[in-house]
Write a protein that binds this DNA or RNA. Structure first.
Lengths: 336, 336
DNA sequence: ATGAAAGCGCTAACAA
DNA sequence: TTGTTAGCGCTTTCAT
């Protein structure tokens, strides 16, 4: 594009040394006389030389580029992971290509393009689906999964400790005296939803509250599915006194539908979510939720990936991060 | 990483042709006999050969990679632009590196790294700030600005038609009978905030309503700054009957503070925002807003960029997209 | 229609 | 400490 940028050889000529010496200088090799170095650096400065990452990749066989594949880039949860990852990657002098793949086919195409054509050194998959898309990734290729359990040996994954988070959320409700606690889940084919269901059941069991399938509604993470859930509970009669929504958006939908049904939150029905989105404290009422640190998850994912790439140690790691209960005004004592 | 993948020469050997013929086949050249092509394709298949993007970049001198620099990756507005851009770029077989740069210094560093070192083929800058960071970008480098006016010749920009959007929002309020219409702006150093102020003033003027500086509050796009705005108006006494917040988040803050001040929305005070975030219809009350299509902006940005890269035509283009009024329940007739 | 040679800009041996 | 010689895997002339 630019009228032929200077190359390592132009610099060499200008400095009166061999191109190899220039290479040594730009790579910070010790084996260069300070004065030689100075001359070369002067030449670099004068010519405005910048090494080409492509040529480097070519010679070294690695691109210093990573990729993140996410179902989408706009969901606040995903975007936060990506941002955390991006910042950490830059720290290590890596860039990251983020792409979205909504279906398995797009995912496979992306992996092929990214890994097959050797554009990237490593991969992070934000993959809430418990399908076997990881199968499409070549063996031994550096990859870290975010938000899904490991289904395989030799696969690293990082996620929220979903079971624990759900356990704690449910317990918060129980500690408030609630006994009829409804659950609004994400899509049940996602690990995350299942684990949170598990935590919910665990807390119930521990408190001696029988599990009631009619109090469980499968949503899809959207606010409208939260609304649907509450409408459904109302229709069934025998309302719950509290609802644990597996994310804040659905919690918001629950609250909205409650308002429409003339149910006061939290007086008549308590609601707790998961995420602590930036707007959660602005809901009406401000939402009690389990705060999770998504950027940290992204950061940890990159760290693990760097570790795999550098040490080629592909030992399985499963990291589960905690969340923190943030009590606001959507939960209140209840029960009979 | 992988035990040396097959190269073009391996395929050539396998197929009994020259590596050049293989090159022709993978590039879809016409000048290959169908039977030769078949043999080569069989060899490719058999060996599982995939061309190396790096080697291609090396030989062709272009990376088929674009970059997008945004203040952050999590803001819904930015993320939507990025996603729109990413999808469109994939369509053209380009990948995009998205990075965040919060301050001008980080921005400059990123540009240098991306353009000077990584040699991306083009750049999209999501740049709401009217500073001169574009100066750091080499002349004649393909770049498209999103969300900022052009301050220079030969620079392409795409954004919402901010003035018109603000004009229409204000007019909606006016048509409802409002005369005391407050404005909550984004940071005034952003083009976007200024243009929206302009549109607001324009609508006011046209309706013969005098502009009142005390009704203007400078926020920072955050919900809390929206709250601050309303608190400020309350403190000043002589409340507005309507508030135009320059984005939905601030509108949400306004509504929340109104509730806290026992002001009913929309009966006592109407509120309109801009964006139509996914959650806006779930606010209480559902927010009237100007819906903008951010993914489309991202898409258009990529299209323009592709055009610049391919045709090397760097003529200035300023594209301003419209927004659409979505009337929900936060605005109501008012006035004296 | 196909092949041979050269080169993209760098790094990695090895020599001097 | 520095220079020389080979590639990295492809595309691009230019022959054939």
């Amino acid at each position: 594009m630019n009228p032929s940028r200077p190359t390592i050889r132009d610099v060499a000529r200008q400095a009166g040394v061999s191109h190899q010496t220039v290479s040594r200088v730009i790579n910070g090799s010790e084996e260069v006389l300070p004065e030689t170095r100075a001359i070369v650096e002067a030449a670099i400065e004068e010519l405005g030389y910048r090494p080409s990452a492509i040529a480097r990749s070519m010679a070294r066989g690695s691109t210093h580029t990573l990729a993140i594949i996410s179902p989408n880039l706009t969901d606040y949860t995903f975007a936060s992971v990506i941002e955390g990852a991006e910042v950490e990657a830059r720290q290590h002098n890596y860039f990251v290509l983020s792409s979205s793949a909504s279906d398995p086919q797009a995912f496979q195409g992306l992996v092929d393009e990214l890994v097959g054509h050797r554009r990237v050194d490593g991969l992070i998959v934000i993959n809430p689906y418990a399908d076997d898309r990881y199968q499409h990734i070549p063996n031994n290729f550096p990859v870290v999964f975010v938000g899904a359990r490991s289904h395989d040996e030799n696969v690293c994954s990082i996620s929220l400790d979903d079971e624990k988070v759900a356990y704690e959320a449910t317990q918060h409700l129980i500690s408030l005296g609630h006994k009829r606690i409804a659950l609004v889940t994400g899509p049940m084919e996602e690990d995350c939803s299942q684990d949170r269901l598990e935590g919910y059941r665990h807390a119930l069991k521990e408190a001696g509250i029988p599990f009631d399938q009619t109090l469980v509604f499968e949503g899809d993470w959207s606010a409208s599915s939260g609304s649907d859930a509450l409408v459904d509970f109302v229709k069934k009669g025998d309302l719950p006194t509290a609802v644990f929504a597996q994310n804040d958006r659905m919690a918001m939908g629950v609250m909205r539908a409650a308002r429409d049904a003339n149910l006061n939150v939290p007086d008549q029905i308590s609601v707790i979510g998961v995420d602590d989105m930036p707007l959660s404290s602005y809901f009406d009422p401000p939402l009690t939720t389990m705060r999770q640190d998504m950027p940290l998850i992204g950061q940890e994912a990159i760290r693990k990936l760097m570790d795999i790439i550098q040490n080629k140690t592909v030992e399985q790691t499963v990291l589960k991060l905690p969340a923190q209960l943030v009590v606001r005004q959507s939960t209140f004592k209840g029960g009979d």
